[in-house]
Design a protein around this nucleic acid. Structure first.
Length: 575
DNA sequence: GCCGTTTTCGGCCCGACTGTTTTCAGTCG
């Protein structure tokens, strides 16, 4: 059973949480958290690095001790240290940390003084009004715990998909913006970094007077609960469960505040450390020389970066994944933008499970400013979509030729989304595949094969000369389906060697490849197709979500094939 | 536990809000 990066990261997070509750040195706890994050952010498979006997301490946040522990986990599947800690601290206490308002100190108190070991214990103690009797706790705290228990119902809180967050954040911003006191208003946080999911919404405001802004904020129609309200900071929870934080700062602090509230946290910490090296202090109000109260920068983000000798870094890559070093060395990527894309390379029509005809799809794409659209209906194995056999596909090819004659300055590419069967063969014979301009290959069945079998399946499929683009490579669906288990390192090496492209599927429920894998593909020289996998005309607009992901993966126009013309793409797909 | 163009020891990002306190610890982002 191969050990995944996320397994190792989870173990270290657990160690951190339990040590924290136990009252261990906070910096030691932080080390485990940072190691976990560092591993989570890693593009290559850490188990492979161990097999290759690489020096793990070269990774940021990983020293001798944690490197040993990683090796132990890879070799034995578990960490003895964690088993030991669990003997001292009940592991279910970690769930208590999910309740807003409960941190390690309070959880420790609850455990030591009331023998609370689980959410159930906590529920009972709250019901019997035992918690309010504890020193440092009170009636309000107890009530808050009760409320939180009810709200979460034992379920782990899920982050909200970006597209859904947009639906709620934008009207709220418009509502606030009606106030004449407001000068600037912007959504910061992971929303601005265009992360696929957001934990909450952070709104930053500059204004002439904060009082009416805060008042209006907490009176918003969709508010379920006011979590806090102050002069410069207020938090609410919307009825759908999404938390929104509002921060008000002065105009002269706008840049440093925006930087701070955009994050990521680890990016900011890196910047602050950099400032300390220069005898400066960065906070949300500006950049201050040691001991001075007058800021030397802060009005714009550029100013703040500049004063620590960095170029401005686009929000999407502020994840402490090497962007600060790149900025320092003038090596920041020139990130791709939606305007760079000339067309879309994956969609479906009424031939299979799409709802619009070939011509309707093509005209809609043209209206969006595209120069081409690849029609890639399913192959026969995908029976739920009534996938096409060779004969039906031949008929579609003929129809596309006819429609292409009618269209000016637009090309419909003849394609298919051919299924990769369990044995690694493609679902249609070569003699029909060769008639096409482009072939998108993907898996829809047997997603639960072992890593070894699944990897072999894809590697085998890639031997086919008509394997052009590997679509929605991991088959994950956000919050719904885990990625398939594969050795991505190995497959990407193969793809790179065979000039096979990989897809960033822009469907908001997929966004597959994700940001980390996109960056990994770029580093290996693999070209990417950003495609919508549209099943309706309207879906064609989703391309922007794929671009978000591509930007988060450091992709530049040159890394993405649909920045090229239709002619160039057809040429690239012929091998 | 990690890290190092002043360090192998002594630091480790920084501030707002809440509730329980009478000056602050805990939590959060």
């Amino acid at each position: 059973m191969p050990v995944h990066n996320s397994d190792i990261a989870d173990i270290f997070s657990e160690v951190a949480d339990l040590l924290d509750i136990e009252g261990a040195n906070e910096f030691r706890v932080r080390s485990y958290r940072e190691a976990a994050q560092s591993i989570e952010n890693l593009s290559s498979n850490i188990a492979d690095l161990v097999d290759e006997d690489k020096d793990l301490t070269e990774l940021h946040g990983i020293g001798e001790s944690i490197a040993d522990k990683i090796r132990e986990i890879v070799e034995t599947g578990k960490l003895e240290q964690l088993e030991e800690i669990k003997k001292r601290v009940p592991e279910d206490l970690i769930q208590l940390l999910n309740l807003s308002g409960l941190g390690p100190e309070r959880v420790k108190d609850l455990y030591q003084k009331l023998s609370i070991k689980s959410l159930d214990d906590l529920k009972k103690a709250a019901k019997n009004e035992k918690i309010r009797e504890l020193e440092g706790f009170g009636e309000k705290t107890e009530n808050k715990i009760k409320k939180e228990l009810e709200r979460l119902g034992g379920e782990e809180e899920k982050r909200t998909k970006l597209i859904r967050a947009e639906e709620y954040a934008e009207p709220l911003v418009s509502y606030l913006d009606e106030l004449e006191e407001i000068k600037k208003i912007i959504i910061a946080g992971s929303y601005r970094r265009r992360k696929e999911t957001v934990g909450d919404i952070d709104i930053l405001v500059t204004c002439s007077d904060s009082e009416p802004v805060m008042d209006r904020f907490v009176k918003y129609d969709d508010v379920e609960e006011v979590i806090s309200k102050g002069d410069t900071k207020s938090s609410i929870r919307l009825k759908i469960g999404l938390q929104v934080d509002l921060r008000v700062v002065k105009e002269k602090s706008y840049g440093s505040a925006l930087l701070y509230f955009t994050g990521s946290k680890s990016h900011n910490i890196k910047l602050r450390e950099r400032a300390i090296d220069r005898d400066l202090k960065i906070n949300e109000y500006g950049v201050f020389p040691e001991g001075k109260e007058k800021p030397v920068a802060g009005k714009t983000e550029e100013e703040v970066y500049d004063i620590v000798d960095l170029e401005w870094i686009p929000p999407e890559i502020r994840e402490n994944r090497g962007e600060i070093e790149a900025s320092e060395n003038g090596k920041l990527p020139k990130l791709i933008s939606l305007d760079d894309l000339k067309g879309d390379l994956h969609c479906h029509t009424t031939y299979t499970d799409g709802v619009d005809s070939i011509e309707e799809m093509a005209r809609a794409a043209k209206d969006l400013g595209h120069k081409y659209l690849a029609i890639t209906d399913h192959s026969k194995r995908v029976t739920v979509a009534e996938g096409l056999d060779a004969k039906e596909l031949a008929k579609q090819i003929e129809e596309i030729d006819k429609i292409n004659e009618k269209l000016n300055d637009f090309t419909i590419l003849k394609g298919v989304e051919v299924d990769i069967l369990e044995d690694g063969s493609l679902d249609l014979p070569d003699d029909i595949l060769k008639e096409l301009d482009i072939r998108v290959c993907s898996i829809h069945y047997k997603l639960d094969l072992s890593s070894e079998k699944q990897t072999r399946r894809i590697l085998k499929a890639m031997e086919n000369q008509y394997f052009n683009i590997w679509a929605h490579p991991t088959d994950r669906e956000i919050h719904k389906r885990d990625p398939i288990d594969i050795n991505m390192d190995k497959i990407m090496s193969e793809a790179a060697g065979r000039n096979i492209c990989m897809e960033i599927n822009s469907s908001p429920r997929r966004l597959d490849l994700n940001d980390i894998h996109s960056k990994m593909a770029k580093e290996r020289g693999i070209k990417i197709a950003i495609s919508t996998d549209s099943h309706t005309k309207d879906n064609l607009k989703n391309l922007k979500y794929g671009v978000n992901q591509a930007r988060r993966g450091w992709l530049e126009a040159d890394d993405v094939i649909n920045t090229k013309s239709a002619g160039e793409i057809i040429k690239m797909m012929k091998k």
